[in-house]
Computed example of a mutant assay.
Amino acid sequence: MSRSSYIIIAAVLLFGSYLYAVTALSPVEPVGRLGFVKVANPDMYPGHPQSKVLADYAAQRGSKCALVVHYAGDSNYRHYREGNVTIIELAYISQEYRTDIDWTEVLEAFIFGVPDGKYRYRADGYEFSSLDEAMDYVERIAREKGQEGPMPMVFHGTVRDGNVFINPGCGFPLYVQIAWRQYGRLGAYYYIIKGLIHPYLNNPYAAYELMHASDLQRLYNRGYLDYTMRG
């Protein structure tokens, strides 16, 4: 084996050790994208298919809580129980609502991270002016629910319009911001790549969502999947 091979192996081992150590001390473990398209409104609630997927994932890993991050709409993003797991929701509030991709913003975030003060945040109807304040609140809820160690964190990942393969979907910038905050640049890059692959391997509804993405988008946008209006 060449010297360069040993160097690469050593670098990988060091990076893996770094992630393991930081994860043990972090309140969250970034997992990745939860879904591809919205399958019902509200986006997350007890019994929702994507909620069950997240709760099952958390329960299998012995976690009492899981965090899902969103792009804020008009929801309060309240935490709730899904089986034996508490689902905590956190959304970032952008000044400009959009469903397409701002590639300049994506590039800047990839190189420099998401700057402090860019967003406000909402959880349980409360709004926070900084990510630190928002995460302090999230961590307090998790402790109250008996969470020990890092809880799984996903971004909702749903896309209302357009290509679900190109657009990473709802909550992705906040996922990146939290991963960068907790794990640094290289750690964030790792969890971005891992997170984008995650649903293809772990979401039992992935094939259905992908095969029917355009139909589900159309039904959702026309209100046919809005169960808040039904008795």
Rank of each mutant, 00 (worst) to 15 (best):
L13G: 06
L13D: 03
F15K: 02
Y18N: 05
L19G: 01
L19M: 04
L19R: 01
Y20H: 13
A21R: 11
A21D: 09
V22S: 09
T23D: 07
A24E: 07
L25G: 04
L25V: 02
P27M: 01
V28P: 00
E29H: 13
E29N: 11
P30E: 00
V31T: 02
G32N: 00
L34S: 03
L34D: 02
G35E: 09
V37L: 02
V37M: 01
K38P: 05
A40H: 10
A40M: 10
N41S: 12
N41E: 07
M44G: 11
M44V: 08
Y45G: 01
P46D: 11
P46N: 11
G47L: 08
H48P: 07
H48A: 15
P49L: 05
Q50C: 11
Q50N: 14
Q50W: 12
K52H: 12
K52A: 14
V53G: 06
L54S: 14
L54N: 11
A55M: 07
D56F: 04
D56P: 07
A58R: 06
A58N: 10
A59Q: 13
Q60G: 15
Q60S: 15
R61I: 05
G62P: 13
G62Q: 08
K64I: 05
K64E: 13
A66L: 05
A66H: 08
H70V: 06
H70E: 09
Y71N: 15
A72S: 15
A72P: 07
G73I: 01
G73P: 00
D74K: 14
D74M: 13
D74W: 12
Y77C: 02
R78E: 13
H79I: 00
Y80L: 02
E82Q: 14
G83Q: 06
V85D: 09
V85A: 09
V85R: 05
I87D: 11
I88P: 06
